[in-house]
């Protein structure tokens, strides 16, 4: 086994070169590069954790904003309903009033018209009575040759008409 046969020859050389190489790796890489690489990893982990926390915060903020928005929408919807109801009531009342006013006007017109009609009727009746009493006078005069006073004729006509 060369490892044993050569031991006396190679030992110093082996130790020397190994310790040299190990020292370079330990101080150059282990103490020089390694902490930098580990700190890079750590910085990245921190960064990721921070970003996640930020994202979480942003999400809760968004949730809050959405909740506020919902509440506002809800409130404004209620208000809108109230306003439309009030408007509906107001317009209803107004319409009713206008209808009533129109009603009253129409009623008044109808009444005057009726009154006119009545007056016309009365006038007509009166005219008819006088015409009838004159006709009765003439008829009596012609048929019976009697002279009837206009007062009696009128009375007779009135009696006949109220019976008729």
């Amino acid at each position: 086994m060369p490892q044993i046969n050569q031991l006396a020859d190679v030992a110093f050389s082996q130790f020397f070169w190994l310790l040299l190489v190990l020292a370079i790796i330990y101080f150059g890489i282990g103490r020089g590069m390694l902490p930098k690489i580990l700190s890079t990893v750590e910085a990245r982990d921190n960064r990721v954790a921070e970003d996640l926390a930020n994202a979480e915060r942003a999400r809760s903020a968004a949730d809050e904003i959405e909740a506020a928005y919902r509440a506002r929408i809800e409130a404004s919807r209620g208000e809108a309903v109230k306003v439309t109801q009030a408007a509906k009531q107001a317009t209803g009342r107004e319409a009713e009033e206008r209808v009533k006013a129109a009603d009253a006007e129409i009623g008044a017109k109808v009444e005057t018209a009726e009154a006119r009609i009545r007056a016309a009727t009365d006038a007509a009746l009166a005219e008819i009575e006088t015409v009838a009493s004159e006709a009765a006078q003439e008829m009596v005069a012609k048929v019976a040759g009697l002279k009837v006073t206009s007062a009696r004729a009128a009375k007779a006509v009135k009696a006949a008409m109220s019976n008729g």
Binding site: F16, W17, I24, I29, M33
Partner: peptide, 24 residues
């Protein structure tokens, strides 16, 4: 010379260089 540069030392340096390149 007790610190003779042997093939073992050569390969140790090759190992060192490989680690160094890898770490860079």
């Amino acid at each position: 010379n007790p610190f003779v540069f042997t093939n073992s030392a050569l390969w140790m340096l090759i190992v060192l260089a490989s680690i160094w390149v890898f770490m860079m």
